[in-house]
């Protein structure tokens, strides 16, 4: 029987109230959202917070909207909510690719986007997804807000720049024309962590790659990013050959470790192959829009 250690519990009535509770409770307080990472860690005593501050009642953090040229996702948005949001999937198919394979349908009803990102598990999918999309994280603190690029948000396994006394409140993704994106994951079964996964976003100027983001999951990529592969692609034509080379570069620059999900060599192979596949799919999805046409069947 797994039982968390004793803990104090507070329900926040607003973001301000949550910040106030955090300030009063000290550095051993933790925000409780869906709890599907935190509570299992508490049961295993890997996490032993003194105080939980429950933000599940904060509807002000549960939103998802396209405003002008930006997608804004409230941190308390549930995985199922993001998966059900047609607009988010239309602009960024990578989000729905990933959400379809995160945990299972029941867990997705409660797990939150902000919770997943703040957990910063090296095998967590959305970290790589938002790194690929070059998203911006919005963090509230008692004196106001600060914004941090997704790529600077993660400082190590299970570590982010969110300081004691702060709350991640929102994720913003800029909507730019001429883009496509995809997430490709290999896992052993539903609900398991990935053996490896790669996400890619492409922005094209004609046939030339004007911008790209490549995120890697569970293969030991720094900040979840394949920076060298991105650097290689920028300014080059979007060809199969270049995508293959980008995959190789991504694999050469990550540091997977062998575990029960597979040997490092296999994970390195996945980093290469899945990067190439994600780029290929991202191009397919970008292409019809560049031509102003409809997406082809089977591109989803």
């Amino acid at each position: 029987m797994q039982v968390p250690a004793q803990v104090e519990y507070e329900q926040a009535a607003s973001v301000e109230h949550a910040l106030d509770l955090l300030a009063r409770s000290g550095p051993e307080a933790r925000i409780l959202a869906g709890g599907h990472s935190l509570i299992p860690m508490m049961k295993l005593r890997l996490a032993q917070p003194e105080t939980l501050i429950d933000i599940n009642g904060l509807s002000e953090l549960a939103f998802l909207e396209v405003t002008g040229d930006e997608l804004r996702i409230g941190a308390l948005t549930r995985h199922a909510g993001l998966l059900a949001a047609a607009g988010a999937g239309e602009h960024f198919p990578i989000l729905h690719d990933a959400e379809r394979v995160i945990a299972d349908p029941v867990v997705r009803e409660w797990g939150t986007i902000g919770g997943s990102l703040c957990q910063a598990d090296p095998s967590e999918d959305l970290s790589a997804v938002f790194a690929a999309l070059r998203a911006t994280m919005v963090i509230r603190h008692p004196a106001g807000i600060r914004t941090v690029p997704a790529r600077e948000f993660f400082t190590g396994p299970y570590e982010t720049v969110v300081a004691p006394g702060e709350i991640l409140t929102e994720i913003r993704v800029a909507i730019r024309p001429g883009g496509g994106s995809s997430y490709q994951k290999v896992g052993r079964r539903v609900g398991d962590w990935p053996v490896g996964a790669a996400g890619a976003a492409l922005w094209l100027d004609g046939d030339v790659i004007s911008g790209t983001g490549i995120g890697l999951t569970a293969v030991g990529a720094r900040h979840f990013v394949a920076a060298e592969a991105e650097e290689f692609l920028r300014g080059r034509p979007a060809t199969e050959e270049n995508f293959g080379r980008a995959g190789q570069i991504a694999a050469e620059n990550c540091q997977p470790v062998s575990d029960q999900r597979g040997p490092a060599e296999y994970k390195r192979h996945l980093a290469s192959e899945l990067t190439t596949r994600a780029l290929r799919a991202a191009l397919r999805r970008a292409a019809p829009r560049r031509a102003g046409g409809q997406r082809r069947p089977g591109d989803g």
Partner: peptide, 25 residues
């Protein structure tokens, strides 16, 4: 460990794995 789903109940309108939800929630 929220893997097996034998403990699924509804919390308001959605199913949850009740081994991974605190009663106070």
């Amino acid at each position: 460990t929220s893997n097996c789903g034998a403990c699924v109940v509804w919390l308001d309108e959605v199913p949850v794995k009740s081994c991974t939800v605190l009663a106070v929630m």
